[in-house]
C-alpha cells in the first residue's frame, strides 16, 4: 500500500472514446451498412450488366470519335433558344417572386392563412424539378419553348422567393419603424423600407439562379419543352454518336461560360 503511494502509477491504456461512445459509433455504422445493403438489394441489380459496362463504354467513346463538327451550325439556334428559355424564365420568376416573398415572410404577411398559402406555394414550386415542371407545361402549352419558359419560371419562383423571404425576415426593424412613424401606408413601408434592404439578395440570387437555369434548360428538350435537349435526345435515339459529342461539347461550353459570367457579375456587384 505504501509502495503504491510512492511510485505513482499511470494508466497504460487510453481510449479517445468511452465504451458507450464506441458502441454508439458501431451502431451508426451498422445502421448505415444495413441501409446500404437494403437499398442496393431492393434495387434488383443485374450485376451482369457491370461485367461488360467498361467494354460498352469504350465502344461508345470510339463511336463518338471523331466529332462531326459539320453538325455545329444546326445546333446554334437551339443553343440560343436554350439561353432564351433560361433568361425569360428567370425574368418571369423574379417578377412573381417579389409578392410571394412578402407573402411568405412572417413579418410582412397579412395573417396566418396568407403565410401558410405562401409557404405552401414555396414548397410546391421548389420540390418539383424543372424537368417535371416541363412535363406539366408541355401537357398544357404543347411542345416548345413556351412550356420550357413556364417550367423554368415555376421552379425558380420558389427558389428566389424563399431566399428573399429569409432576407425580409432579417430586415432591420428600426428602418421599418422609422418609415411607419411618418404615416406611410403598409405598401409604402414595404417599398421604401424593406425592398431596398433585400435588393442585394434579390439581385445576387437572380444571377445565381440564371446560371443554374441555363444548365436546367439544356435538358428541357427531353420532355419536349424546347432548347438543345431535343437535338441531344434525337441524336442519341438515331445512334448518331458523333453528333452527340458535338452537342455535349456545345452544352459544356455554354454552361461553363454562363457559370463564369454569373460568378463574375456577382463578384462585381458585391
Amino acid at each position: 500500500m505504501s509502495e503504491a503511494s510512492v511510485a505513482k502509477r499511470y494508466p497504460e491504456v487510453w481510449r479517445r472514446r468511452s465504451p458507450q461512445e464506441t458502441a454508439l459509433g458501431w451502431l451508426w455504422t451498422a445502421a448505415i451498412a444495413l441501409a446500404a445493403a437494403w437499398s442496393v438489394s431492393a434495387l434488383d441489380i443485374e450485376w451482369a450488366f457491370f461485367a461488360d459496362a467498361h467494354v460498352q463504354a469504350l465502344d461508345l467513346v470510339q463511336r463518338m470519335w471523331p466529332p462531326r463538327w459539320s453538325y455545329l451550325p444546326t445546333i446554334v439556334r437551339p443553343m440560343i433558344e436554350t439561353i432564351h428559355i433560361a433568361t425569360l424564365g428567370t425574368a418571369i420568376a423574379v417578377v412573381l417572386s417579389v409578392p410571394l416573398a412578402f407573402l411568405s415572410a412572417r413579418n410582412t404577411t397579412a395573417n396566418g392563412l396568407t403565410w401558410a398559402i405562401g409557404r405552401a406555394l414555396l414548397v410546391a414550386s421548389r420540390s418539383v424539378n424543372t424537368v417535371i415542371w416541363g412535363l406539366v407545361f408541355v401537357a398544357i402549352f404543347g411542345p416548345g419553348p413556351v412550356a420550357g419558359i413556364a417550367a423554368v419560371a415555376a421552379r425558380s419562383v420558389g427558389f428566389l422567393a424563399k431566399l428573399m423571404a429569409e432576407a425580409i425576415e432579417e430586415a432591420e426593424r428600426g428602418q421599418i419603424e422609422a418609415v411607419q412613424a411618418t404615416g406611410a401606408s403598409t405598401a409604402q413601408v414595404y417599398l421604401v423600407a424593406v425592398l431596398p434592404q433585400v435588393m442585394p439578395v434579390l439581385i445576387g440570387t437572380t444571377i445565381y439562379r440564371w446560371d443554374i437555369n441555363v444548365r436546367e434548360s439544356s435538358v428541357l428538350g427531353f420532355v419536349g419543352a424546347g432548347g438543345i435537349g431535343l437535338y441531344l435526345y434525337a441524336s442519341i435515339n438515331q445512334f448518331a454518336w458523333q453528333q452527340v459529342l458535338v452537342v455535349l461539347a456545345a452544352i459544356l461550353v455554354v454552361v461553363l461560360l454562363s457559370e463564369a459570367l454569373s460568378a463574375y457579375v456577382r463578384a462585381r456587384i458585391t
Partner: peptide
Amino acid sequence: RRRIGMIFQEFNLVER
C-alpha cells in the same frame, strides 16, 4: 402619424 415627427437613437435611416 403624419402630424408627429419622430427621431431615433439609431437614426433608422434606410441605409441603402
